[in-house]
Computed example of a mutant assay.
Amino acid sequence: MPIEHLTPSDLKARTARAVAAATSAGRALGLDVADPKVLHDVFSVVVHLAPSPVVVRVPVALPPGLNGAPQTARQARELAAVAWLADRGLPVVRPSPLVPREPVQRDGFSMTFWEFVEVDTSRQPDFIADAALAADLHAALRDYPGQLSFLSPVTESVPSCLALLEENPGPLAPADLERVRGEWTVLQPVLSSREGFAKAFPNVSVQPIHGDAPSYNIIRTTSGVRYADFEDVNLGPVEWDLSFLGPEGAAVYNAAAARAGVRPLDPAVLRVMDAAGMIRMVASYALVPQLPMLAEWLASSLERWRTMPFAGGLS
């Protein structure tokens, strides 16, 4: 039976509940919250607790199985990693120093609190050029001592989302399901453990990485660029962070990596990470009932995926 999609009024009500929970939690922590403002509202509702210099990120659309204890563990990993980077002088959007550095539960939501930064709206993003910043980030993260799961953006969401799509494929054609099922069969042994990856690519190192396209998660502030959104921080090959940037982005990254003392990208691994990213994209169709606008956003990527080499050429 098809899963019912949230309606515009459902989405508006969910956002209102998230804002109310963030506001209530902030006030309970002693913050002055007179005029909360929504800064972003997709997978998370991001709320500035004005006039306090604090922003709350409230996840509202999650893959199945990634709520409760797994969600709070994920949030705690992010807070710990970003705080570690901030202590070493890396320009990041830091956990707010005005509240305890831990996830907060309120009214059915689990949320994290961050410093508010002034965005420089005169500066436009340049995802290719910012690949150089990813190399600097990898150099800094290389020594991070915290415990991280291997390629958790894939392992924590793809299997459960694919299982949902088997029951409710939505806009996916039978040929799409057959292909993604076959690709996952090939790639799952490589992506699901450090040992499996090492067996396929014995000469390619892994390390702590951002996990969610750092070139796309650079915030241009009035005081310079900041790295942000480390929700998917994990252990993996640096190629995961460079997925979909193409040859030009890879060249920019490799030039910066040479300066930063980071290894260059491995072309075969990059092709596999592109394929893994596409599998994750297809699996994201399982979240369309929670975020109906995803169907339109993912459509062009779905068409691209249909033309790409099967499983990144891995056999």
Score class of each variant (00 low, 15 high):
Val99Pro: 01
Ala134Cys: 07
Pro214Thr: 02
Ala22Tyr: 00
Pro51Gln: 03
Glu231Val: 11
Ser223Asn: 05
Ser315Lys: 13
Gly236Pro: 05
Ala80His: 08
Val206His: 01
Leu245Val: 04
Thr221Pro: 11
Pro153Gln: 02
Met308Leu: 12
Trp297Gln: 13
Ala256Asn: 07
Gly224Phe: 11
Ile218Trp: 12
Trp184Lys: 00
Met278Ser: 15
Trp114Val: 08
Ala139Trp: 03
Val154Cys: 12
Thr72Ala: 11
Glu167Lys: 15
Ala228Pro: 05
Val262Gly: 01
Pro103Gly: 14
Tyr227Phe: 15
Pro63Gln: 06
Ala311Phe: 07
Asp130Thr: 01
Ala198Asp: 09
Asp41Ala: 13
Lys12Arg: 15
Ala256His: 05
Thr15Tyr: 01
Arg94Trp: 08
Ala76Pro: 03
Leu164Ser: 10
Asp120His: 04
Gly26Glu: 07
Glu248Val: 10
Leu11Gly: 07
Ala175Asn: 08
Glu115Trp: 04
Leu187Cys: 08
Ile209Ala: 11
Val225Arg: 14
Phe109Lys: 10
Leu270Asn: 00
Ala250Ile: 10
Pro289Glu: 09
Leu62Cys: 07
Asp232Met: 10
Glu102Leu: 14
Ser193Leu: 02
Ala251Ser: 09
Val206Glu: 04
Pro145Ile: 09
Ala295Met: 11
Leu242Ala: 00
Ala255Tyr: 00
Val119Gln: 13
Val38Asp: 10
Ala25Val: 04
Arg142Trp: 09
Glu167Cys: 09
Asp120Phe: 00
Phe127Asp: 01
Ala163Trp: 04
Ala86Glu: 11
Trp297Phe: 15
Val19Glu: 14
Val288Asp: 02
Pro64Leu: 10
Glu115Leu: 03
Met278Cys: 13
Val19Gln: 14
Gln124Trp: 06
Val82Ser: 02
Asp32Lys: 14
Glu248Ile: 03
Asp212Val: 02
His5Gly: 02
Val93Phe: 09
Val252Met: 03
Asp130Tyr: 08
Leu11Trp: 04
Ser110Met: 03
Pro237Ala: 13
Leu141His: 07
Asn203Tyr: 14
Pro59Gly: 11
Pro70Tyr: 01
Ile218Gln: 13
Ala175Pro: 08
Leu31Ala: 07
Gly249Leu: 01
Val38Arg: 10
Trp184Cys: 07
Arg306Glu: 03
Arg101Lys: 12
Pro145Asn: 06
His5Ile: 04
Leu66Ile: 09
Glu156Leu: 13
Ile218Ser: 09
Glu167Ser: 12
Ala228Ser: 14
Val42Tyr: 14
Ser223Pro: 00
Ser223Tyr: 07
Arg88Phe: 03
Phe113Lys: 05
Pro91Glu: 02
Ser44Met: 00
Ala250Trp: 06
Leu79Asp: 01
Ala173Thr: 08
Gly68Ser: 13
Leu49Gly: 10
Val19Ile: 12
Val190Tyr: 01
Pro125Ala: 06
Ile218Arg: 12
Ala163Phe: 01
Pro189Cys: 06
Ala86Asp: 14
Ser301Pro: 04
Thr15Gly: 11
Thr222His: 05
